[in-house]
């Protein structure tokens, strides 16, 4: 297994762990951390592929992704705050008024 393949596999495993975390965990903050893990797994793929192709493009994309993830984190935590104010909980099983 070449180094590129090894890193791509690592990234896929991290992405899978993140996905499983989103699907299985109940605490919204932990779910959100798993989403961040998925984004970072993608970043690892970009950097690996960038090195494989000998381009700088992939590494530049990572900066965009990191900036976007930071913006998303600030908005997400604010939303979790408003949910806590209304529901006094951030567990997904407590936040389910809407259904039908």
């Amino acid at each position: 297994m070449s180094l590129t393949e090894a890193y791509l596999s690592l990234s896929a495993i991290m992405f899978g762990i993140g996905t499983l975390g989103v699907l299985l965990r109940k605490n919204t903050i932990v779910i959100f951390m798993c989403i961040e893990l998925m984004l970072n797994a993608v970043n690892l793929s970009f950097v690996t592929l960038s090195r494989e192709y000998g381009q700088v493009d992939g590494q530049v994309y990572v900066f965009f992704v990191m900036a976007v993830a930071a913006a998303e984190a600030s908005v997400g935590l604010a939303i979790i705050m408003t949910v806590f104010r209304n529901f006094y909980s951030i567990e997904t099983e407590d936040v389910h008024d809407l259904q039908g």
Partner: peptide, 26 residues
């Protein structure tokens, strides 16, 4: 606020998939 939370979690989850798709295309 519940709608916003659901939209945020599902939206961020899906954008991670979109991004991974872009990485694979790259």
């Amino acid at each position: 606020s519940e709608g916003a939370l659901k939209y945020f979690l599902f939206g961020a989850f899906s954008s991670a998939f979109l991004l991974y798709g872009m990485a694979m295309v790259y």
